[in-house]
Write a protein that binds this DNA or RNA. Structure first.
Length: 301
DNA sequence: AATCCGTGGGC
DNA sequence: TGCCCAAGGAT
């Protein structure tokens, strides 16, 4: 099936015009952010709302304005500066990516999609986002916002599948503008529409620039009928214990004895498993005889 | 392919 | 009040 060329062209102009009028003034969208700023923001924004990223991003960029600045410090400093953003392995991967950029790319964030994809913590989405937002290239940028907008506007369903499918990639490629600069604006605009208007819970169709052409709206807003979109529980999991352990280590200025860490969780088996997991992940470093700290040296390759 | 990996805000 | 959700990636 083919979407008519005129239809997609109308979508492009409607959405990019809306974006020009309503785009948020986010720091990583300003020219001075550069590719490094875009990359830092993309790491932080993985599964994390903009409002919580903003203050951490500003401090991060002030402290480490270039990849080499971050690479020159111990990975534990990245974990500490990450604060309570969540998923602290992202901090470790961003540090490792900075080291790779300093080592293999002359200190400049690569513009090549494959080179980006090869960096730690950079997957399909982040590689496309950096290439598109920082370098103006033409890529299908499939994040949760874009996937939801395409699912509704073009496929006519309430929610996209749980994991990105080949059909979604084909659809995104098919509606991607041919022109490189326009494609980059389209990517940012569809993402912004999903974040501000076409939201998961209660979409603001009254404010949507493409509501008249939205397949989901025209179909009468059919409810999601696939398998339940089950979120993961959190209370009582290893993740919660890991979070508590790492919070203690982030705040500490000196290595922490195990007895202090033991206070964060009652159940000893799970507590030990969580700490072992953090050590295995390189988020925590055993110093000596039951004393721990954030990692001072990068894990061996 | 299904699970794991943090944290907090909104409804 | 729980539950859903937030610019994913790695295994």
């Amino acid at each position: 099936m083919k979407t008519d060329h005129c239809v997609t062209t109308a979508l492009h102009s409607s959405l990019t015009a809306w974006f020009a009028a309503h785009a948020r003034d986010l720091p990583w969208r300003r020219p001075e952010a550069g590719a490094w700023g875009v990359m830092v923001s993309e790491f932080m924004l993985q599964q994390t709302p903009v409002s919580r990223v903003l203050p951490v991003y500003e401090q991060w960029m002030a402290r480490w304005p270039r990849p080499a600045d971050l690479a020159a410090e111990p990975p534990g400093e990245a974990v500490r500066a990450w604060g309570r953003l969540g998923y602290p392995r992202r901090a470790l991967r961003l540090h490792a990516a900075a080291a790779a950029i300093a080592d293999r790319h002359g200190g400049e964030v690569p513009c090549d999609h494959a080179a980006l994809l090869a960096l730690p913590g950079v997957g399909e989405y982040t590689a496309a986002a950096v290439a598109s937002f920082a370098y103006g290239q033409r890529h299908a940028v499939l994040d949760t916002n874009v996937r939801r907008v395409l699912a509704r506007a073009l496929t006519g369903v309430q929610y996209p599948p749980n994991a990105t499918t080949a059909a979604e990639r084909r659809l995104a490629q098919r509606v991607l503008p041919d022109d490189e600069a326009l494609a980059a604006r389209w990517a940012a605009a569809t993402m912004e529409l999903g974040a501000l208007v076409c939201t998961a819970r209660t979409p603001g169709c009254g404010r949507c620039p493409i509501a008249e052409r939205c397949a989901w709206r025209l179909a009468g807003f059919p409810e999601h009928d696939g398998p339940p979109r089950r979120g993961q529980s959190y209370a009582g999991t290893d993740r919660q214990v890991r979070g508590k352990l790492l919070a203690v280590l982030r705040e500490a200025t000196a290595p922490v004895p195990r007895e202090v860490l033991d206070r964060v969780w009652d159940e000893p088996v799970q507590r030990a498993r969580a700490l072992d997991g953090l050590v295995a992940d390189g988020l925590v470093e055993p110093v000596a005889d039951g004393v721990y700290r954030l990692p001072q040296r990068a894990p061996l390759p």
